[in-house]
Computed example of a mutant assay.
Amino acid sequence: MTSENLRATLLCVFGMVIVGSSVSLSQLILDYPPLTGQAARYALAALALFGIARVFPRLGAAAPAAHPTPPPGPRAGRRAPLRPRPSGTRPTPRERGILALLAATGLAAFNACILVALPHADAAAVGTVIGAAPLGLALLGPLLRGQRPTLRLVAAAGIVVAGTAAVQGAGRTDAVGLLAALGALGGEIAFSLLAAAVLPRLGPVRVAAHSCALAVPLLLVAAVPAGEPGRWRLPTPVEAATLGYLAAFMTVLAFLAWFTGLRRLGVERAGMIVGVMPLATLATAAVQAGRLPDPGQTLGVLVVALGLALGLTTRGGGQSVERSAARTASA
């Protein structure tokens, strides 16, 4: 593994650890209208991210491409200097569509599906279904590029999924809970696949900022049929602090770490690291409870580690989103 890939891997792991360890904090805002709370979280995150993009405009931006050298003209032997092609900071209409779809599926619909699923299924069952995301990304990532999935990466992703299932446990669910959990799984997969399409030009900061901003009106609209307007109120100090933490750490910091690593590793390799999230949740719960995980969960942790080691050391598997975009542009 190269040093750049190692840094990208550590960033993805860091992002998933933040998300997994922050799950228990959501218990502190259970009494607050959930879709409204998520809209507030993403609004705060979008403000912070646009501020970061304004203060540090080149942070995470793609290197500008250069115009090709024109053929020699009347002045043979002299080449015109290469002029950087403006990379731009505003999304194109196509990119806005992708970002809107990312916000609708990976953020708004994902949260809505979780809220629908939990009354009908144990959290363990929902987590197990969402834990299949590494396998979905290992299969769909190359297929969307017109390539065949790498057998070793698919096998490694399957091992990660099996380990995640062991960590989460089976749990109970009915048909509604299962369908909603599958919807959340689709949102989790779309989150990385759609981001990969716009990361090469926009960079992690702007992708995160625009997707968070676009998710806010979608969540507020969804809150209306859910009956939340009648319960709208100012958050308590604890709820406000929790929403602020979720916006700053679980959204801004985790999104930037994940998107930066994803841009380097590609969706297949980065997707396997989603398996770290339930491990972080398990470790946080064990610390809070003051007891070690049970043997089955410990075995699941070891299985996930085995799958990650197998997948992340695969040669020739996966492709950075920048390289994928370059190949698509030159085709």
Rank of each mutant, 00 (worst) to 15 (best):
G244C: 08
G141M: 07
V216W: 00
A223T: 10
G227T: 07
P149D: 15
V221Y: 08
L243P: 03
A248F: 01
G266Y: 03
A175V: 15
V224Q: 12
P235E: 06
L202C: 08
R206F: 06
G271N: 06
G266M: 09
G177M: 03
L178E: 09
E188F: 13
L234Q: 11
F249G: 04
L194T: 07
G261V: 00
V167G: 13
A181R: 00
A181N: 09
V154R: 07
L139F: 13
R152W: 12
S211Y: 00
R148G: 01
V216E: 02
L179R: 06
A175M: 14
S192D: 06
L262G: 01
L182A: 14
A190N: 08
L246S: 05
G271R: 04
L246C: 04
A247L: 11
R172Q: 12
L265M: 08
A180G: 07
A195L: 13
A180Q: 11
G227H: 12
A181E: 02
L214H: 01
L199H: 06
P217Q: 10
A180E: 09
V221F: 07
G187C: 11
R233A: 09
G141L: 08
V267Q: 14
L253K: 02
G186P: 13
R269Y: 03
W258D: 04
F255Q: 10
A162K: 08
T251Y: 06
W232E: 12
T236D: 07
A222I: 10
V161K: 15
T260Y: 00
P149M: 15
V161L: 14
G186M: 10
A248M: 05
P149F: 14
V161S: 10
P235R: 08
Q147R: 15
P149L: 14
A162M: 14
A157F: 03
T260D: 01
R152G: 10
G275M: 06
A222P: 09
R269W: 02
A215T: 08
L185M: 14
L153G: 13
G187M: 12
Q168P: 01
A240P: 10
A213T: 05
A257T: 00
L140T: 10
L194I: 11
V221L: 14
G271A: 11
G171W: 01
L220I: 05
L202A: 03
P149W: 13
A241W: 01
F191L: 15
L243R: 04
A184P: 13
P204Y: 04
V198K: 03
V221M: 12
P237V: 09
G266A: 11
L178K: 01
A156N: 08
L218V: 01
G230C: 01
E268D: 08
G171S: 11
A157T: 04
G203E: 07
A156G: 13
P235F: 05
A166T: 05
R206A: 03
P149K: 15
L151A: 15
W258A: 09
T260E: 10
R264N: 06
G146F: 11
D174L: 02
L262H: 05
L182V: 15
L246E: 00
A209N: 02
G163M: 04
V224E: 07
A222S: 09
L199Y: 08
Q168E: 10
G169W: 08
A240G: 12
